[in-house]
């Protein structure tokens, strides 16, 4: 809804014009109706470079309203440049409240992580996606990957996992780990660590994925089964650590390894800053 109060500024509410937001919302509706299917959309130029979250920002701009509370995380942290900039951007152009607390947020835009705190009904998780096509590294032709998706021909994805085991003795893929959505489409979960894959499965929150450069939107509706691909005798496993978080002592969260001095002393801390702070 255009707002007379901000007519004086150079941009529409939430930066994008209303027609663009309608177009993106239509793409989102289609994506939600066909879980895991990549819907093309007319991606716009955004005031930041491709790879910094143009897809996620366009999705967020299309769904955000004044009564929303926005949280933005980058690699789990609320205080990195990308997260701070995008949060400030929407605070200015969409006049929304922002937060760093996962429970308070209605819309969470994320890059490379899913919050540790379980998400609830009514929350929306917006992922920034660099390469939406999970088969891209195996099949360079777009026409062919679309056919493979359409016909559910996913042998080649399994071949890549086979190859990983043959070469490394285990499935060595640790991020962007391919998933099967609702038993139909193979989907790239964006470069989140495979540690987060189980959180996508039957999540109560709506998951929206936006790829700005490739101009694709896809979605996982709430409570949709999301299965990580594996072999019967090499089941999917998540990362584990022998350490616990040096700040909050968590043994359940995803830990970042940091080198803290010149002698190579190491420290493990939670990658999810909000989760970590709430436990201290």
């Amino acid at each position: 809804m255009p707002d007379t109060n901000i007519q004086a500024t150079a941009y529409n509410y939430a930066y994008l014009d209303e027609q663009t937001k309608r177009m993106i919302r239509r793409a989102i509706l289609k994506a939600v109706a066909v879980p895991g299917y990549q819907v093309p959309f007319g991606g716009r130029e955004m005031p930041l470079p491709y790879g910094w979250g143009t897809g996620g920002i366009q999705v967020t701009a299309a769904i955000i309203g004044r009564d929303d509370t926005l949280k933005v995380i980058d690699q789990g942290a609320d205080d990195t440049t990308n997260a701070v900039s995008i949060r400030r951007f929407f605070a200015k152009v969409a006049e929304v409240a922002t937060t760093t607390h996962t429970e308070e947020a209605t819309v969470i835009q994320t890059r490379h992580r899913v919050p540790e705190t379980p998400l609830t009904d009514g929350q929306i998780l917006v992922f920034q996606v660099p390469i939406p096509e999970p088969l891209r590294m195996l099949e360079p032709r777009e026409t062919e990957t679309r056919t493979l998706h359409a016909l559910s021909e996913y042998g080649v994805m399994q071949v890549s996992l086979y190859e990983s085991i043959a070469r490394h003795g285990r499935i060595a893929k640790t991020y962007n780990y391919p998933v099967m959505v609702n038993g139909r489409y193979i989907m790239s979960p964006s470069p989140i660590p495979k540690f987060d894959n189980p959180k996508l499965d039957r999540s109560a929150a709506l998951q929206l994925y936006g790829a700005g450069r490739e101009k694709r939107i896809y979605a996982v509706p709430p409570h949709t089964p999301v299965k990580s691909l594996d072999f019967d005798d090499h089941p999917f496993e998540i990362e584990t650590w022998t350490e616990c978080c040096a700040l909050c002592g968590s043994k359940e969260s995803f830990l970042d390894e940091m080198i803290v001095d010149d002698t190579g002393k190491r420290l493990f801390v939670c990658s999810d800053t909000d989760y970590c702070e709430s436990r201290r």
Partner: peptide, 10 residues
């Protein structure tokens, strides 16, 4: 071909 028709045991 085996994986394409559903073999999932490495």
């Amino acid at each position: 071909r085996l994986m394409a028709v559903g073999a999932r045991h490495y």
